[in-house]
Design a protein around this nucleic acid. Structure first.
Lengths: 150, 150
DNA sequence: ATAAATAAAGATAACTTTGTCTTTATTTAT
DNA sequence: ATAAATAAAGACAAAGTTATCTTTATTTAT
């Protein structure tokens, strides 16, 4: 569905939101290890997310790193997609038509539309904080590690 | 959502199913013009769809071209995705995790799952014939032309 | 002030996808 | 048989994505 870059962006942001605060910033090394992503590539992606501190905030130097403000944690997950410029994907015609609307629908339009609407709703109503909280509680995961037997 | 190649595959197959029969085959030139796709690239894609006549059938030489058997027209749209090897996309974790299941879900899993199920259902229950018939009736479209005023 | 730790920026490489062009094989009509 | 029309196959090119490495800028601690 999304590009690798956006997948890493989503996982990295959730991890930072979960582990970090303005007082406890997270280094790129920790992030990429935690989410199983290539470190330098992830650094590049975080540069997009920190543009104008839109989603992620960062500080350089010792004890620097990444964090999300409390305000940023309340952003919808869609804000990550927007920062990655992969937001239009949610609106796109499934057959790739430039023109696909109620007036001139593609053959999948009517039925795909309702699925798209649910997708959009999901990304708009879910906040970064909600995802991070779930992860903190250990109910869900954002790495590729095999589950440990209880 | 899908690659360009798969978008062209979907549009081309629908067009062939709509316009062609075993008696009236459709040339790659006509197809690519009708669906607004690059001709040579579309030819390559149709080679994938004609492998073992899985979805599309073809004949070379004068009056040759592409068509779908009546049987092929009854295939689910998902058969096109399978031929394009883009079928796994419907099952993939939205965060790109290799491991994402009920046992070890990503933070989006529970809610994304229901959307995925609807997507799969759509591609499994819709047949190529249904899409082609809708298009024939002029209710829906598979090109990028501006709608004509009535 | 200096050194160390960190992210930002930039250059580049590897790989994939998309697209084009040329040659070959097959089929039909004459 | 030959020529023409078509798809198939293969080589290549262009563009985009993913990934790495090096250098620079910033911040902190000493």
């Amino acid at each position: 569905m999304f590009s690798k870059a956006t997948e890493y962006a989503l996982r990295a942001t959730i991890y930072i939101a979960k582990q970090g605060t303005e007082e406890k910033k997270i280094s790129i090394e920790e992030i990429s290890k935690a989410i199983d992503s290539p470190q330098s590539f992830t650094a590049k992606i975080l540069q997009l997310l920190t543009r104008d501190n839109k989603v992620v905030s960062s500080v350089r130097g010792p004890n620097g790193g990444f964090f999300l403000t409390e305000k940023a944690k309340n952003l919808p997950v869609r804000a990550i997609l927007q920062a990655m410029e992969e937001d239009q994907l949610l609106e796109k015609c499934v057959l790739g038509l430039k023109l696909c609307s109620e007036l001139q629908p593609c053959p999948m339009h009517a039925q795909y539309k309702t699925i798209k609407q649910q997708l959009i709703k999901l990304f708009v109503t879910k906040t970064i904080r909600q995802l991070a909280d779930d992860t903190l509680e250990g109910a869900v995961f954002i790495n590729n590690k095999k589950p440990r037997k209880k």
